[in-house]
Design a protein around this nucleic acid. Sequence first.
RNA 1: GCGCCGCUAGCUCAAUUGGCAGAGCAACUGACUCUUAAUCAGUAGGUUCGGGGUUCGAUUCCCCGGCGGUGUACCA
Length: 496
Amino acid sequence: MSDKEKKEGGRERDERIRKLEELRRLGVNPYPYRFERTHSLIETMENEGSLSTDGASVSVAGRIMAIRGHGHTSFGNLKDGTGSLQFYIKDAGVDEKTWKTFRLLDVGDVVGLSGSLFRTKTGELTIKVKGLELLSKSLLPLPEKYHGLQDKELRYRQRYVDLIVNDEVMEVFRTRARIIDTIRSFLNERDFLEVETPVLQPIYGGAMARPFVTHHNALDMKLYLRIADELYLKRLIVGGMERVYEFCKDFRNEGMDRSHNPEFTMLECYAAYWDYNDMMEFVETLYQKLADEVLGTTKIKYGEQEIDLATPWRRLPFFESIKEKTGKDLREASEEELRKTAERCGINLEGVSGWVGLIDEIFSELVEPHLIQPVFITDYPVELSPLAKMHRSEKGLVERFEPYIAGFEMGNAFSELNDPLDQRERFEQQTRMRQEGADETHPVDENYLRALEHGMPPTGGLGIGIDRLVMLLTDSHSIRDVILFPAMRPETGRDG
RNA sequence: GCGCCGCUAGCUCAAUUGGCAGAGCAACUGACUCUUAAUCAGUAGGUUCGGGGUUCGAUUCCCCGGCGGUGUACCA
């Protein structure tokens, strides 16, 4: 036994192992193979009428969350994936072995109980235990019953304990599943085809971010974990899959904070013959439906903010949004003018360079934080968007939008650039920007260019950050609260 | 990366102007046949995150490190 194992749980663990051995001596297998349930706990409660009138027996299973002993009797609480039910056991009501077994149980043990339902004098539905089967002996104690598990580090590292004792955590992840399910139905109903594309990519692309790098031994080559699946999905559009989507785990080798985890979930979808206006309608309709189905209302609360997701959402061109804050149309402004405007607005420009960098900084500082109600920011400068199609009427802009809610960028969408020669030119511009010192630029992807040269129909494309969407709809304020196992540094030994 | 805050019993938290480290829950022993944060009596449980320094004495003060939280930066 390692030192670590000895320490973890300490004396209480030793005590439980002692009970385990005693149970075995009684002829009880503490880890049997299966148990036949007749009802989940929620079904038990819902069918109380029929179950208790004819004195029928029910069999339920779950984890013991509390034991309140009274000498010859005991009350306790059993919890399963659907709910919680009180149980009552009396030594005279069960055989001797069962009673002895019960006396060796602890809070945290998984058991199967059979018996009949009744109401206590305080009116609580309770199962009167006749049969009891230990299904799994727990060796480590659960956290304190009243305060639960508070320590954020432990909650993230031992999410299973968090889920056992903090019901609201379970609820967040049920909601997450409902959200994804609703999106999938929404897409399937509209004839989108769910596909899978490579996680390991020889050239990363579709976004601007630092990738994780890995190595393929058999091929002796460098591979990147995807930062996006965009370029693969658009190859499928070329191939004639007219509507495709993928729930895509993406990986970005960058900082972690309240809204960034190194691996996160993105939905990307593409529809041939759509443009970004179709995509805007699609997004607002989807969000309205999600709010309705998941929360039952489009009026949601996020922290102190009241947000209404009902359609239609405001459309606000990028430069228009900046004009609202600065009073100036900066589309034609020189770099010098941008710098002056930014400084006048009190923006710290340390480390910011170039026209694009400045305009982006001004937008981030002055506009973004105020985008609380749903809004589509549209028509971005071409330099910011190497994969988006030139605007049909506005020079220097592309047909791109980002939905913003509660100050969060919730996604990104374009009329996809399908002109292969223009796309090549954009990639080359990225390369020039890189040579001029830009940190992160989009690499040239010849393979993708060849696909475009075969002809991609006009296409609307969309990416939605699923984690942020779940945050919004569950009123969660850290991405770690909507990811079951968020990235953490490994636990170190006691010697640090 | 940087700033600030935190780390004390299995869990939730106290305490120390630097002087024997505490409570509640959980555990253990006992009492108790409708309790539900059960109750009552008792017992046990600590490398105060790790290392170093100052000191007669450090859990407390100082330095280095670890992990976490939070803000900020990066994320064209």
